[in-house]
């Protein structure tokens, strides 16, 4: 088994050249994204270095339950990111979004660490944090897609929803098909990922393990579990979030608020 080839500081800064290339595209096509790319690159450096140092301390921490605190922080940050993508002031959705991410993600991550990897205890930071991070990071996009779709449909199909309400439908009966479409939209990326994995792309976790010198046949087993886990967490969290947020899009007389 070979050892992970370390990336030196100089090589790391050479990596910044990729950002300059992306900024070049932005300038060439007048996309106005050069500043965002710079901010994104700085945040990538800062956040990952902070996380790297934090993980070193967390893994060394004798209180293993600290992993749940870190996990809650990751979910809170994901809630904030999802919230910034959904542009509505009429509906308060952050709390339901937090809980619809927290419970399913923790359940799925705990099943993977406890039952499949058989880590002892299941909340060992060494396992729960990376696995939980993958669940939160990947499924967050599914959830954002689903909620964006729900809000967009509630706005564009408002007359259709109102028409059903006017004929005696409850808010659920009037918007059920919109909720289904939103959940479906949220689940499609993880289904597509399962279709393309190993053919179109090699996922980050597997690539990381191979670069670190692991046996490809061992790392694919991890990756298979991760792919299945992401499909489940996307399905559970998008369903929960869409159902909870949809309810909040209607007022006390079941009138549309969006």
């Amino acid at each position: 088994m070979t050892h992970l080839q370390n990336i030196g500081t100089l090589q790391l800064f050479i990596g910044l050249g990729f950002i300059f290339l992306a900024q070049g595209c932005s300038i060439l096509f007048r996309l106005g994204l050069a500043r965002d790319l710079a901010v994104g690159a700085i945040r990538t450096f800062a956040q990952l270095f902070i996380m790297g140092y934090a993980l070193t301390y967390i893994f060394a921490c004798p209180v293993k339950l600290v992993s749940l605190l870190v996990f809650s922080f990751m979910v809170a940050a994901a809630t904030h990111i999802v919230g910034s993508r959904i542009k509505t002031k009429a509906v308060r959705f952050r709390l339901p979004v937090f809980f619809s991410m927290f419970a399913p993600y923790l359940l799925v991550a705990a099943m993977v660490t406890g039952v499949i990897i058989q880590a002892k205890p299941w909340y060992d930071p060494m396992y729960l944090i990376p696995i939980g991070g993958m669940v939160v990071g990947n499924s967050m996009s599914s959830l954002a897609v689903a909620l964006e779709r729900l809000m967009a449909d509630l706005r564009s199909k408002r007359e259709m929803v109102e028409m059903r309400l006017c004929l005696g439908a409850t808010d659920w009966e009037a918007s059920r098909d919109l909720a289904s479409d939103a959940i479906k939209a949220g689940m499609i990326p993880s289904i597509n990922a399962m279709m393309g994995v190993g053919v179109v792309f090699l996922p980050g976790m597997m690539t990381g393990q191979i670069l670190a010198g692991a046996d490809p046949l061992a790392s694919i087993r991890y990756q298979i579990v991760v792919m299945l886990m992401l499909a489940a967490s996307a399905a559970l969290s998008t369903s929960a979030a869409v159902l909870l947020v949809r309810k909040r899009c209607f007022g006390r007389a079941q009138q549309p608020l969006v």
């Binding site: 259709m160 059903r164 309400l165 005696g168 409850t170 007389a253 079941q254």
Partner: peptide, 29 residues
């Protein structure tokens, strides 16, 4: 609210149909 709206029934300006036939639409309520 559903009971009220079946009694005080508001009809929109644009005629909105759901997918399906005429009968499906009439029996939608």
């Amino acid at each position: 609210a559903p009971e009220l709206r079946s009694k005080v029934l508001y009809l929109h300006q644009s005629p909105l149909m759901v997918e399906g036939g005429v009968e499906d639409n009439i029996l939608l309520p």
